[in-house]
Simulated scan of single mutants.
Amino acid sequence: MTATLPSELREVFARCAEAELVTVDASGRPRARAVASRYREGGPCIDVVGARPPISDPHVALLFSADVPTVLVQGTAYADEALHVRPERVYAWDADDAEPRMFDAHLEEVRSGHNEEPEVPHAAPGGGSGHWDPRLEAVSSALLACVGPDGFPFAARLDVTPDARGGVLRLPWLPVGMPVEPGPACLHATGNGPCVHGDLLAGAEGWRVVPHAVA
């Protein structure tokens, strides 16, 4: 599929030696981590090289957020010497408040950012009280990963507002096109910050993540 993408997106894959990989574990919860990536011009896949993360579900996502445009690749993964991600759908944001351009492997053309794939059940919020870690007070931006209604993980890098009193991480804004709904989520903080697993919930004050585990 990559050969049909605009050259500016292929150049992002080629320039960025690192990406953030989102997988879905056996319980249906998203897991995010920084990985080394490799791309060959016009190739069918984007490769994850180095340490190979466990893959319970072939539905994965790769976020390239260190360049413009920001690019999210949703794809299916298979492994041999490396982990190969075959793109199924690609989103590209030219600005934080812009509607993403979307490219679909089945159509091989640009279409609206609205996802028209059939919905599949995914894990419900775990519930229960949150676990607040003092390290969370320093988090100002992070990758938010969730599982979309089509079963593919979805991720975006965004601003975070810690609320120690409320025991939650508040999300002042979400990118246009992100299919958020209550459920399990992962927040991977910028740099060497913590990785948070918890519940993504909506409320009168907007979306928030209730932390259940902090690594």
Rank of each mutant, 00 (worst) to 15 (best):
F154H: 13
P162A: 09
P153N: 11
D159H: 12
R165W: 09
V176E: 14
C186L: 06
L169H: 10
G130M: 11
C146A: 14
L144M: 04
H131Y: 12
L187T: 00
G177I: 07
L169Q: 04
S129G: 14
S141E: 14
V196C: 02
R157G: 01
G191D: 13
L169K: 07
F154W: 13
G183H: 04
G130F: 07
P182K: 06
G126R: 15
D199W: 02
G126L: 11
D133A: 13
L169M: 13
P175G: 05
E137D: 14
R157P: 00
A185S: 10
H131E: 11
A156F: 00
A156G: 08
A142N: 10
V147Y: 02
W132D: 12
A145E: 03
G128Q: 09
G166N: 03
H131T: 15
P184G: 12
L174H: 06
D159R: 15
G126W: 00
P134K: 08
G203D: 13
F154T: 12
L136D: 11
P194G: 06
V120P: 04
T161P: 00
P162T: 14
G166C: 09
L143M: 11
H122E: 01
P182A: 12
P162D: 12
L144S: 08
H122F: 10
N192K: 06
A156V: 11
P194K: 05
D163K: 02
L169D: 02
L200R: 01
V176P: 01
G148M: 00
H131A: 15
P172Y: 08
N192M: 04
L136H: 02
C186G: 08
S140V: 13
S141T: 15
S140C: 09
A142Y: 08
E137N: 07
T190F: 11
M178G: 01
H197P: 00
N192H: 15
P182M: 05
H131F: 15
E137A: 12
G126H: 12
P182Y: 05
G183V: 07
P162S: 11
V139Y: 04
G183Y: 05
